[in-house]
Design a binder for these strands. Structure first.
Lengths: 351, 351
DNA sequence: TGTTAATTCGTGTACGTTAACGCATGTATT
DNA sequence: AATACATGCGTTAACGTACACGAATTAACA
């Protein structure tokens, strides 16, 4: 139960196989210079003893650092969303730094594919042991993944997933369900014949499928429950407040909207508009950003849906660490919880 | 920015101080056998170089294990709540096991102080480096903490806090606010003159202040918002279903209750009763247990409030690890997020 | 002054692994 | 037959720290 004291090491393996520890070491790292026969014998003994290398000794003896590449969007004034994953990444980095692991970070611009490609090209794969990547640009990412696969460099995705690749794991949201949940929360408040407005605010075309997926979830709820509310939708392709305000004004002039679902963190712009025009409507949006929080507390936003951006970064790095250092693999798909933030629990939220 | 290569070790310190590494080692562990003069000199150099011992080498060279004592309630049939913290604890244990840390667990019975004392007495403090404890029984815990303080053994609290002690940190809920939040959620649904019922189900007297704190938060919300709803309350001191059902029946006969707030995980019993009597009322309770989850999905429970029991255990152990091994301290008070679980997001919840 | 006992310190080995170095063999090339 | 070169392996010095052992120095006392 508690005492598996007799931890064997290379010495014991060597003794049993009648070879030197050098040879054992060679097969452990499958380097060349061992005959098939002895290699098999040693492998068998390793198997039999269920040998676990002592990682302390290993890292101590090996002077080379382990390097993880981190490829994520930069935090723009456009959105400070990516600050959070970065914080998580840096926390993890701090925790594993004592074990000789360092990070190399590559930031790309969410609005420009070219910047992504540029960063990718800058990476020297020959001195990188693992990769954490937010694969926003699908095609370009896939080209990169193929290179990684060739070199057998493990990688994990955060924030968005690409199917059909050998990623170690994915840490991020399940978008559909978050839209579905939003609809449910909305239903608590609206009446039978209320009109609902879905608002997409984004000029980042490549992110659009993100928003769409949430919208699908949202609409599905109404369909499944057979609710008859009118659901309007507006795409706002400029993110500055003036443009948003004007767009909303147009809609509101022609329709009597009583609840709004904003599909991303831009909900604060809508809240601001409602505030200024003194219109009180139910409002649901995404992400625990500074501006959103302000409107949440002040009452303009009813609910924020949030999916632990920081944790995505933290866990992503940790998954790489567990794999590279301890050869442990965890779950492949790690959907973040879909958190509901209100003015009452927001102070305790861990982003 | 990135390269603080020149990591100094005892060797360098010894060289600068014109002593041997043995002497340096002695002052590092402040053992005896070093003259004050050389000791001061070495200390000064350590300071100057901001020497950080290499923990890998340290743990490798030191054959002794580090032992953490874990003192928490056992999972009873009464409640399987404590299974979750335990899971978190065991996950953390798995992660730090490679670094020579082992756990000794002491389970006590929530219903019996004596069992707590009994477990405490069983612990041999001389071979324990740190303690994780759920200090449910305050007075008895305090006696124990004094002993720990004397031996300078660090400890962290989970689940409930005791003020005025040298605990490294606390990981657990802020109860008042979770009651407050529940009230807010309820307000979305109830009408002005609806009657509300608060239900306490517990025969564990010592846990009672937990429940009370939530009730206070709940009531405060109604007071602050100046809501005029009638709030009834019932204490149910037996936890078996029959007793709960009978108690509820009595209340419902005399009052027209339209929403119920159950102050702990026993909410499933209430849900079951509502189900059987075909009564539909808004229902809010606590904790992501198997039974609760079932009623949540099926629609009898509207919201579950949950505070990451697993994470409490995980983070508690990790805090001890960071302190004992890396001499790092984190925040003292770590209130868990107050999570809102509905049928729509429950599948993604991480307990 | 010599003897003894503290006190203060240096040396050596160990922890389990890595990896450079080098020594035997065996096989192919002139 | 002499030379070259590859293959298969053992030896050994690190990595940074812990700690036992014993040597040197000093203090104490006769």
């Amino acid at each position: 139960m508690e005492g598996n004291k007799e931890l064997v090491g290379v010495k014991e393996i060597a003794r049993r196989a009648n070879v030197s520890i050098g040879t054992v070491d060679r097969v452990l790292h499958n380097r060349t210079g061992v005959s098939k026969k002895t290699k098999d014998k040693i492998l068998a003994i390793i198997e039999e003893l269920a040998y676990q290398p002592n990682i302390l000794a290993r890292r101590l003896a090996s002077k080379k650092q382990i390097v993880f590449a981190v490829i994520i969007p930069s935090v723009s004034d456009e959105t400070d969303y990516w600050q959070e994953p970065l914080l998580g990444i840096e926390q993890a980095a701090g925790e594993i730094a004592p074990y000789g692991i360092i990070l190399k970070k590559y930031f790309y611009d969410l609005n420009h594919k070219t910047s992504f490609v540029q960063q990718i090209d800058q990476i020297d794969l020959s001195d990188i042991q693992a990769v954490l990547i937010a694969p926003i640009f699908i095609e370009e990412s896939e080209n990169f993944l193929i290179k990684l696969d060739k070199r057998k460099i493990p990688y994990v995705f955060i924030n968005s997933d690409i199917q059909g690749h050998n990623s170690l794991s994915y840490f991020g949201p399940e978008l559909y369900q978050s839209g579905y949940l939003s609809a449910h929360l909305m239903k608590y408040v609206i009446k039978e014949d209320d009109t609902i407005l879905i608002v997409n605010i984004s000029h980042e075309i490549d992110n659009h499928h993100h928003l769409l997926r949430k919208e699908q979830g949202f609409r599905s709820y109404f369909k499944e429950k057979d609710l008859k509310n009118t659901i309007l939708k507006i795409d706002i392709v400029q993110t500055d407040y003036q443009f948003v305000a004007t767009s909303l004004q147009t809609v509101f002039k022609e329709n009597n909207v009583s609840a709004i679902f904003v599909t991303n963190s831009r909900v604060s712009a809508v809240a601001k508009y409602l505030n200024q025009t003194n219109a009180r409507k139910m409002l649901i949006g995404f992400d625990y950003t500074k501006e959103n929080l302000q409107f949440l507390k002040q009452g303009s936003i009813d609910f924020l849906i949030c999916q632990k951006p920081r944790e995505q970064g933290y866990k992503g790095i940790m998954a790489l660490y567990q794999f590279v250092v301890h050869a442990k693999t965890g779950e492949k798909n790690n959907f973040m919880p879909i958190d509901i933030i209100t003015a009452q629990n927001c102070d305790f939220y861990i982003n």
